[in-house]
Design a protein around this nucleic acid. Structure first.
Lengths: 108, 108
DNA sequence: CTTTAATATGTGTATATGTTAATATATGCA
DNA sequence: TGCATATATTAACATATACACATATTAAAG
């Protein structure tokens, strides 16, 4: 039962460079309180940028910068309505992991 | 159906300071390639510090630093055998999330 | 075409982070 | 006690990060 498959990263083989990068980047995105609060907001519904800033008491530029960060990783997306951009989450799996970690932190 | 429960962080209520800190710290731990590689190693079995350093081609002090980081978050533990310390993972849930994220990154 | 509202971007700055070399600590053994 | 091995710790450094301010862009309305 030697491991001969070329595309198996299940748990025993070495992590290739690209996978390592994507995984670390994604976790890094979740490793900041501001970004967690933003994603946590987006759990329920879409929000405009200013709405996020007001709700979380953050500067508009701070929110915009973090949204760009999250958008580059395809963790959020937006929909335009006039001059307003409504952001929403765009990765169900990552949102589920965030939810899991929050629950994990609460129950311990 | 007002939300009156005091201890519910499921997905709609605000995140309290402490939960936010723990969650962000834990994700931050997973947000570094070196720490991911260490945890990925520990998936299968326990490893001595030098063994980790040699396997991953890292300096001993680097590994020791990162292990301390992970130990503070109770993500790893160790067992002493003479002068050798065997490290192993100590949080099944976090290891599962790491595995999930790796799979998620591979299949996309 | 000017104005206004909403958002994005560039830049500076303070802080956080990861790595390294050097050194300290701890354990086992002769 | 003295020495060797394994690991931890300290300090320094370079880089990365998050935020704020100012400014630029975009789109709608008049």
């Amino acid at each position: 039962m030697e491991d001969k498959e070329p595309n198996e990263n299940e748990s025993n083989k070495n992590l290739d460079e690209e996978t390592l990068f994507v995984v670390s980047q994604t976790f890094k995105a979740l490793g900041d309180p501001t970004r967690i609060r933003i994603l946590h907001l987006l759990f329920n519904r879409e929000y405009a940028v200013n709405e996020i800033a007001e709700t979380l008491e953050l500067r508009q530029s701070t929110v915009s910068h973090q949204l760009r960060f999250l958008k580059n990783l395809r963790l959020v997306k937006y929909r335009r309505a006039g001059t307003t951009l409504f952001y929403s989450h765009d990765d169900e799996h990552v949102m589920l992991m965030l939810k899991q970690m929050i629950d994990h932190a609460c129950h311990s």
